[in-house]
Structure formats: C-alpha cells, structure tokens
Amino acid sequence: MAKIIVITSGKGGVGKTTTAASISMGLAQRGHRTVVIDFDVGLRNLDLIMGCERRVVYDFVHVINGEANLSQALIRDKRCDALYVLPASQTRDKEALTKEGVGKVLETLSQTYDYIVCDSPAGIEHGANMAMYYADDAIVVTNPEVSSVRDSDRMLGILASKSRRAENNEEPIREYLLLTRYVPERVQRGEMLSVEDVQEILSLELLGVIPESQAVLNASNSGIPVILDAESDAGQAYRDVVARYLGEDVPHRFLDTRKKGFLSRLLGS
C-alpha cells in the first residue's frame, strides 16, 4: 500500500508545485517507487517543472474517463527510474475529477508505488478537495506572510473535517508545515514573520524551511526539479526535507543570516 501525500496550501503561488516536484524526485532518488500527480486541472504546470511536457499524450482525466490506461498516461522520469508523472488535463472542466474516479486511480497506483504525491491546485474548492481527500499525510506549504498563513490554517480545518479519514473517523491526516520563500535577512530586520512565529500560530510539526532562492527559477526554466541542483541552498533544503520526512534527524539549515565562509562550512561549525 502506498502512502498518499498531498502538497497543499490554500493560497496560490506559494511553491506547491516546486515542492511536489522536488519531494517526489527526492523520494524516488532514495529508491522509493514514486508517482507524482498534477491535480491542477486546466492549469497544468507540474509537467513543465518536471521537464516532461513534450511527452504528455494522455492525462489524469483521460484515465478517470476510461479513455486511456494508467500505463499510457504515466510518464517515466528520464533521470530517475523510480519516478513517474501523471499529468493534469488541460480541459476546462474541473468537475472531471470525481471522488470515485480519483479514488479508483489512487487505489490502482497504491498497488505498485510506495509514495503517491498529489500536487494540489490553489484554493479550497473542488480540485483542492480532490487532491487532499484520500491523503494520509499533508505537507502544508506556507510563505511567511499573513494571507498565506491564514489560508494554511483554513486548509488545516478542511483536512480535519472533509478528508476521507475525517469522514470515516479514522486516524487524522498527519500534517506537516513547510515554510518556503524564507528570507532570513528580512526576518532579522523584523519585516518578515519568523519560522517560530508561523509555527506558533499554526502549531504544526515543522518539516523544513526553504529559503527564497534564485535556484528555483533557474530550475523551473530548465525543467529540472530544484532538488537536483545539489549545489543550491533550495536544493539542499529540499534534500533535508525528504530525509526528515523519512524519519531522519536532520538539523534545520538556512535560517540564519550569517553567511558561512568556505572554511567554517568545511569545519561544519
């Protein structure tokens, strides 16, 4: 049985797709059979970030409607054998994702994969609800900014009341906070909510902090999940996040303004 992880936020543009791409790649690189699904019907982007947009023939909605098999729609990642992408459709009909249809696809995938990563669309409507409904774990992507934090909290309310686990009175979805686009310098100047502030308000387990980074744009420009840019701060931060998600005890990094010189980095101080 696969573990189903939803990458969600409420607010748009906070870094869900960036996160879904990197986390799924990170899990697959560690040998876990992983599939990442784009739930953003009409606005599909995940294939672009993953760099497989030219290989899309069939999509999630085709599979749900029985117009294609899963094996026809799944795209194997060229960089990592354990990773597959299920793209979203560009049809405008958001209702194409039905609860039953999504459930069937996830159940079939569950038999083959270890992890199913669901990239949620923004908002708290149908698409976002479908993405989170079957989840076991939720990674709530939040920016250190008021509307994002508020929307994350709303999403927590939805996870706790509208998910399958909630409806069936099962153990609730396990929720993690991922703070992205963090700028320690601005936090230090008192211009940006700190990681402690956000954690205090949302009271969630902190999975990691991804710094605001030029590397993210470079990565999306070239269709490479930023986690593969091992030199970059954001890439390393996502690597840590995957390790932490898998239960490893990895200290948080990139929270400080102090620029580490080469020597102190070498000495690990």
Partner: peptide
C-alpha cells in the same frame, strides 16, 4: 540581537494573525 525589542511590521502581522486564526478556528 535577541534582547532587542521586536520591531517592524512582522510583529503586527503576527498579532493580527493570532487573532484572525483564533477567530477562524472557533468559527469552524
């Protein structure tokens, strides 16, 4: 650094959020 009183808009943001979230939660 830590003993300085918090300054800047982040403090206001946090206070507003605390109230807002509390309100949202009790509404839920």
């Amino acid at each position: 650094r830590d003993s300085q009183p918090p300054k800047g808009s982040a403090r206001v943001a946090k206070e507003r959020l605390r109230i807002l979230v509390e309100r949202d939660r009790s509404g839920r």
